[in-house]
Simulated scan of single mutants.
Amino acid sequence: MEEKNRYYVVTKKAVPEVLLKVVEAKRLLESAKASTVQEAADMVGISRSSFYKYKDDIFPFHDNAKGKTITFMIQMDDETGLLSDVLHIVADYHANILTIHQSIPINGIASLTLSVEILATTGDISAMMQDIEIQCGVQYIKILARE
């Protein structure tokens, strides 16, 4: 059986330099200070392949996440009640659901895009993601955006 992702919060000093440079390159691209991945990679001193290897796996954790919106993409089996179970987990963590979009299932797999607002009462987002990911029928979860 495939092992599910686990999420950790670590201090900056424990993160390898290449990962910190990937975060910086992503920031340069998002702020339009770099117009291409190659330009951003050159500016921070990493290879383009290092950027692509880690870009989906590292992002800054902001202590001021309260009041922010996080958008998740979840791939899950087309099973009765699974969407309800996922939404129940979000409710248990006291996050406010802003939008839900579920695609028509193809080959028994549905893609769900879920945007949630992080409230002052919202629990640990990493734990929420992990609780969703371990649900039977959830194949994949990824943070698409943090606003």
Score class of each variant (00 low, 15 high):
residue 112 L to Q: 02
residue 21 K to M: 07
residue 107 N to M: 08
residue 2 E to H: 09
residue 9 V to S: 10
residue 111 S to P: 01
residue 107 N to F: 10
residue 25 A to M: 03
residue 66 K to N: 08
residue 13 K to V: 12
residue 127 A to I: 05
residue 142 K to Q: 11
residue 36 T to A: 07
residue 107 N to E: 15
residue 60 P to S: 14
residue 120 A to W: 09
residue 64 N to F: 08
residue 12 K to I: 13
residue 127 A to S: 10
residue 68 K to S: 11
residue 73 M to R: 12
residue 115 S to H: 05
residue 100 I to V: 15
residue 30 E to A: 10
residue 46 I to S: 03
residue 4 K to H: 14
residue 33 K to E: 02
residue 129 M to T: 01
residue 94 H to E: 14
residue 145 A to H: 15
residue 29 L to G: 04
residue 109 I to N: 03
residue 48 R to Y: 06
residue 60 P to W: 10
residue 77 D to C: 08
residue 16 P to G: 09
residue 33 K to I: 03
residue 90 V to H: 06
residue 124 D to K: 11
residue 52 Y to E: 06
residue 118 I to W: 00
residue 4 K to C: 11
residue 79 E to D: 11
residue 59 F to K: 13
residue 64 N to V: 13
residue 26 K to N: 01
residue 145 A to G: 15
residue 88 H to Y: 15
residue 116 V to S: 02
residue 137 G to V: 02
residue 64 N to C: 06
residue 118 I to R: 00
residue 34 A to F: 00
residue 55 K to R: 15
residue 43 M to I: 04
residue 41 A to L: 05
residue 85 D to F: 03
residue 101 H to Y: 14
residue 119 L to P: 00
residue 3 E to H: 10
residue 143 I to Y: 01
residue 8 Y to R: 09
residue 33 K to Y: 02
residue 56 D to S: 13
residue 45 G to K: 06
residue 45 G to L: 06
residue 98 L to F: 06
residue 12 K to L: 11
residue 111 S to K: 05
residue 2 E to Y: 12
residue 16 P to E: 15
residue 102 Q to T: 09
residue 135 Q to L: 15
residue 20 L to T: 02
residue 90 V to I: 09
residue 74 I to S: 03
residue 29 L to F: 05
residue 84 S to D: 12
residue 47 S to R: 09
residue 22 V to D: 01
residue 55 K to D: 07
residue 5 N to F: 14
residue 121 T to K: 15
residue 13 K to W: 07
residue 31 S to G: 10
residue 110 A to L: 08
residue 12 K to R: 15
residue 116 V to N: 02
residue 36 T to F: 06
residue 53 K to C: 07
residue 67 G to W: 06
residue 49 S to L: 13
residue 30 E to Q: 12
residue 115 S to T: 14
residue 75 Q to V: 03
residue 81 G to Y: 10
residue 82 L to M: 09
residue 127 A to Q: 08
residue 54 Y to T: 04
residue 11 T to K: 11
residue 33 K to H: 03
residue 41 A to G: 01
residue 56 D to G: 08
residue 90 V to L: 08
residue 93 Y to S: 12
residue 133 E to C: 13
residue 34 A to Y: 00
residue 63 D to S: 13
residue 84 S to N: 13
residue 21 K to A: 05
